[in-house]
Amino acid sequence: MYEISKELKEKVTQLNSTLVDKYKDFFNMDSIQLRDFIDKNVGEIVEIKKLTKDELTKCSEKGGIVGVDGSKNRVGGAYPHYVEIFQGLAKSTLHKEKPIFKADFYTPLYLEGERELLKKFEEEENKEEAIRDYKLSGIEVEVALEAVEKFSPYVIMMDGSLIRYDIECFDKWMELRKECEERDIILIGVIKDIKTSIIGQSLVEQNNLNTKEFLYDREILYGLLRYGEMIRVEDSMTKKSKEGFTSIFMRSSKAPNIIGMDILDSQREYLDEMARLVFSLTPSSSRGVPLWLDIVDSQVKVSDKMMRSLLERYLDRQVLEKFFISERDKRTL
């Protein structure tokens, strides 16, 4: 049985008191008034229904759904003695036996192979981080592009906000966007971890919340939306609209948290249908993520065990031990 020190208990209690006091105005807000404010100032709150069996069948007949996700993991110690592995996966609901994988790696020990990317991001303050972001988002876009060619799906469902690809791998992203628009393939992003602050900023700006504290939409909407409700975010309220996206928030499961969804502004006519699709594919008892994306996520993940096995099998022992095993790692490798 582990023991918690008196000081640690006091520190956590202090943290709780600090946060309760800091956000007391938010905690005391009336939920009915908050819903009314959102409905009038941020976006309409509407109830959505799951797709019928006939509608889901038509989705399959039109090419089905491709789920896309990526994963990364890192082995090693301090700079430059580490290697990071990236893996992307696109998986079709109609061609389950034909997954599309792509992989890449990054290590500061082999910058000769990164000359092109170093030049591309030469003005970035953190070139290394920019390169790693580009590699991960880039292979996700690449597997999506290959899925477009091989499967011609009705929908491509990316794990995460679409604006991430616009920022991190713009050239590849624009190719994917163009292909989907020209082929009438609906492209959406499902966002598990909301990082926007649209509602909080609006509340402060309109003096509905007497605080200057930064409030994220995830905590404001926690438990506020009912199961099967979504907010159609007005384009004027989000920076994403300037980059060519339309967004919603929705509660897709009985868990109190919400998720987000992006769609291309050129495909906004499919917004409600895609919200209903995400709702239909999400188990009510889950954390709110469509089951197909959860399946893709589990199959693309680069686990610690996989990393160890991969490096032990394909790297010379002296290379592995001299460059990528820290003293702490020697206890497990």
Rank of each mutant, 00 (worst) to 15 (best):
I185S: 08
W292H: 15
K127D: 03
P153T: 01
S236G: 03
P99S: 02
K50G: 13
S252A: 11
E123Y: 07
E61L: 02
V300H: 07
M1C: 11
S60D: 06
K58I: 00
I139K: 00
E181M: 08
E146L: 09
V289T: 13
R276T: 03
G67P: 00
E112H: 05
S92P: 08
L145I: 10
F121D: 05
G228N: 03
Q267P: 14
K119Q: 13
R328W: 15
L162T: 00
K301D: 09
N41Y: 12
K58S: 06
E44N: 05
K119G: 07
L19K: 03
R115M: 07
R308M: 12
I199C: 09
V83N: 09
L281K: 03
R276E: 05
Y314R: 00
I186D: 02
D133R: 04
L224F: 03
I220S: 04
I263L: 10
V141I: 13
F324P: 13
W292L: 12
E122S: 12
K58L: 10
R328N: 11
K24D: 13
L291S: 11
D36E: 15
R35Q: 15
N126E: 12
R232N: 05
L221N: 06
G260K: 12
V143S: 02
S31F: 08
P108E: 07
I156F: 07
A78F: 11
D30W: 05
Y227L: 01
E124K: 14
Y222A: 00
L15N: 14
N126A: 02
S236P: 02
I199L: 06
A103Y: 08
D265F: 09
S286T: 07
R268Y: 12
E128Q: 12
E269I: 08
L209P: 07
D217M: 10
G228H: 04
E129L: 06
G228C: 02
T196R: 04
I263P: 10
R226A: 12
N210V: 05
K242H: 10
G88F: 04
S286L: 08
E229L: 01
A90M: 02
R331T: 07
N210F: 08
L187I: 01
D30G: 07
L310V: 08
E129P: 02
F37W: 06
D69R: 01
